[in-house]
């Protein structure tokens, strides 16, 4: 499988940057595509392949950074699917950490992160970001 998956951001979709070599996976921006399943299909395929082929490396921690401004409910469900793939990797022995990044006063996004934290069995950190001056 390819090591890097990159999808540029658009007005309605986030930047996706998954880099297996660097053990860093990032979803950043707004996510309200017309068809979330279609948009996230390459991401889901990448993760399905990763789950099937990856040999756990305890020396590396996979970091998944999720930093979203807006996301619609169909994205909400796909996000859970994405987290479930990382959960499978974690269950197979691959160290994984999810960092849910949100602006410090954005309680909406903080609450969404708390919901996901409850829904999956993964090391899950909520990180409040300070707005740039």
């Amino acid at each position: 499988m390819t090591s890097v998956l990159h999808i540029d951001a658009s007005l309605t979709t986030p930047e996706i940057h998954f880099d297996l070599e660097k053990a860093h996976f990032s979803i950043k921006g707004s996510s309200y595509p017309e068809n979330s399943l279609k948009f996230y299909q390459p991401v889901v395929q990448y993760l399905a392949d990763l789950v099937n082929t990856h040999t756990p490396d305890p020396a590396k921690t996979f970091i998944l950074d999720v930093e979203l401004q807006y996301f619609n409910t169909s994205t909400a469900k796909v996000l859970l699917d994405i987290l479930r793939y990382f959960e499978q990797l974690y269950e197979k022995g691959q160290p994984v950490k999810v960092r849910w990044l949100y602006l410090e006063d954005d309680t909406e996004m903080e609450d969404a992160g708390l919901d996901y934290q409850t829904a999956v069995k993964l090391p899950f950190e909520l990180v409040a970001l300070h707005e740039e001056a």
Partner: peptide, 19 residues
């Protein structure tokens, strides 16, 4: 909401009535 989010299927266009 939590139940639909975590357990239901969704369609190509939407989020299973979550809106």
């Amino acid at each position: 909401y939590q139940n639909v989010l975590t357990k239901s299927d969704y369609t190509d266009s939407g989020g299973a009535g979550l809106g």
